[in-house]
Design a protein around this nucleic acid. Sequence first.
DNA 1: TAGATTGTTAATCGATTAACAATC
DNA 2: TAGATTGTTAATCGATTAACAATC
Lengths: 206, 206
Amino acid sequence: MTKQDIPDIVVGRLPFYLRSLQRMQQEGQQVTSSQELGARLGVSAAQIRKDLSQFGEFGKQGTGYNIQFLSNQLRKILNLDQVWDMAIIGAGDVGNALAHYSGFRNRGFQCTMIFDNTAEKIGGMIGTLVVKDVAYMADEIQAAGIKVAMLAVPADHAQEVTDLLIEAGVKAILNYAPIQLSVPESVRVENIDPATHLQRMSYYLK
Amino acid sequence: MTKQDIPDIVVGRLPFYLRSLQRMQQEGQQVTSSQELGARLGVSAAQIRKDLSQFGEFGKQGTGYNIQFLSNQLRKILNLDQVWDMAIIGAGDVGNALAHYSGFRNRGFQCTMIFDNTAEKIGGMIGTLVVKDVAYMADEIQAAGIKVAMLAVPADHAQEVTDLLIEAGVKAILNYAPIQLSVPESVRVENIDPATHLQRMSYYLK
DNA sequence: TAGATTGTTAATCGATTAACAATC
DNA sequence: TAGATTGTTAATCGATTAACAATC
């Protein structure tokens, strides 16, 4: 069973399953069912069982899923049984919020570098990180073996920075710039553009 | 042709089309084709034509689409021929970044209120906005007729704030809290959770 | 006219759901 | 055992693509 066999859309739902399981665990729950998990997430029980069955058999007939066990399995599947170092590119408001965000660590990620191109920001601290000159970005990322970057620069610089990131070996980019990045097939991109999300909802208003 | 007839997945692509068209326009282009637009966005020309045909006939055989005209049509369809007032809930790093974000205005939205629950923040300024006490949130939102909110509070308060927002008449929520909100069918929610996006990509790493 | 591109239909492809035997 | 729930198959549903007549 190779990566190619599993539809993207199935992989895309696993983080939601994991997030709900982690929350149940926090609430002290030990066991759940596809029924219960589905109700919490607004998806069908059948879909959850079908999705999970792509990767193995994680439940027991009659009783459901052990939450701890299923969480661990999902973390392994998603390569979250390690902590991924990340670089933030852009020390504006978004970069700043990302650098301070405390929610990454227990979900498999941590920020270890932040870059900017403005003299006033370079050398300053954001949380525990020193803002570095983007001129050294490619070298530093490559030297540190960083594979994941969050891109929070203005749209008109996003593509050139992306090209540098890819050259430096980055394989996953969380893109906050409101622009469609062009990347080779071997690089994953996820986009976060609040205005796009808002526009999806405004259709249904009025 | 009612809202129900158009699949969500089609509506979800319209903002991307609009964003690309606006960019083309900035670059001085006057006309485009489903071919060209598709290439820019990484979707098929047939899909673009099919999606647009759900709403009307906007092109001309042989020549393609007038960018200005198609943009205007898409804006009308998405109810973006007006500016939607928005409230930000939570004046932490995310709320702060949203309040300062300059990209909303020319995409149909503007922030007019921000709320928090901490005494130190209430009364302070963020950009041009005064931070207000969340205790008055429901009343102020209702009085102003605000229909769109961006939720940037910790996960453990997100649901209770949501309930208040809905009571106050909010119909669209952009949710930054890493939790599945429960809302009535008449309310739209879009979620932005960077960790979820990162986890979707880590599956393909290694 | 010749070339290009739309809007639409029918065919294909893929995803979701329903149902149930297996079994805890 | 009786009740519950899994994993999986087959049926259904929906979305995408290919193809082409219409026409600018």
